[in-house]
Write a protein that binds this DNA or RNA. Sequence first.
DNA 1: TCCATTGATGTCAGTTACTGTCATGACCGT
DNA 2: ACGGTCATGACAGTAACTGACATCAATGGA
Lengths: 187, 187
Amino acid sequence: MGRWAPDARGRLIRSALELYAERGFEQTTALEVAERAGVTERTFFRYFSDKREVLFEGSRNLQDVIVTAIAAAPSSTGSIDAVATAIESAASLLPNREYSRQRAAVIAANPSLQERELLKLATLAGAMVEALHRRGVAKLAAGLAAETGVTVFKIGFETWIGDESTQELAQCIREALDQLKNLTAGA
Amino acid sequence: MGRWAPDARGRLIRSALELYAERGFEQTTALEVAERAGVTERTFFRYFSDKREVLFEGSRNLQDVIVTAIAAAPSSTGSIDAVATAIESAASLLPNREYSRQRAAVIAANPSLQERELLKLATLAGAMVEALHRRGVAKLAAGLAAETGVTVFKIGFETWIGDESTQELAQCIREALDQLKNLTAGA
DNA sequence: TCCATTGATGTCAGTTACTGTCATGACCGT
DNA sequence: ACGGTCATGACAGTAACTGACATCAATGGA
């Protein structure tokens, strides 16, 4: 590992985010990203299966952590709380707020990037359903808990990114869940 | 309209579904679809913005119907019921079950088609949130009702497609909603 | 010390999704 | 008959990927 230019992958990720943010995703070619990172276009595609994937590094890792946390929750914990706690514990793995903000802005500006994000979230929900299954949760309940968990994560994340305060992501997620509980209790 | 070969759009849609089902989406080129429909590749891309879009015809129409139905619901109706009723009323617009089955199989077999479907559903949810807003529903409640509505639609649709019986789609959707209500009531 | 191996990279040719531009030819109203 | 309109064809071009092969520094053993 790393006998040549060290951290080519990391430089590609940073170069891509910079260029996508400066000129927009569609107006940036893979060749330009590669050149800024000091490698060839071919090397870009060796590290990332496509031009979008460079923005979604680490989402697989996140998924593994969440699934593990769900499996590790005490059996007395309800599905939704197990999911929410797992997501909170994974929150610390996310990149810093400045990076996340920039990344979210780039994604929000391009439909094909939104598509990829939605697929990642759907995949995450699917993995959570499986993990809940192994806890003996029924299929429909597992689906609901997982979808709800993803929704809570999305809302909490948006709050965190849009917020000026120094509030932690985990706290934002917890608050979103509380709001949701109030809402469903009221109905 | 239609001075030349009539219904080029319809023939493109049918040709695409056939070829995508026979050989798979990625193994089919846009040129092949166009040739089967008796037009050139250029004409294919005049009708559809990309190779995937040919499978998603009419989803815009569906969205308009649902939004209108939500706006037309009596003001005494709760958000979730307004959403569910709107979705049920749009169910009759969907193509027949055989077509839907084939289409669903093609989409399930390809990640990039799944992405597109997720984006369409997210867009639909966004439009429903707006429609609920105009009924005076609070932001978070509107988001929840819309997301829940989409979930109910997805589950009802899957049931309808997988089902051997001659049950109607609207009925499957209604049943999914009932199941969900039981679940949340029990918790 | 030398040499074979390994693994990340460069090079290059090829396919395919899409786009811009102009030409064509049937249809329409006058 | 004639000019305009409009769907389409023809054609060239860009850029996202992919496969095959070459290169070359580091590594490890003879």
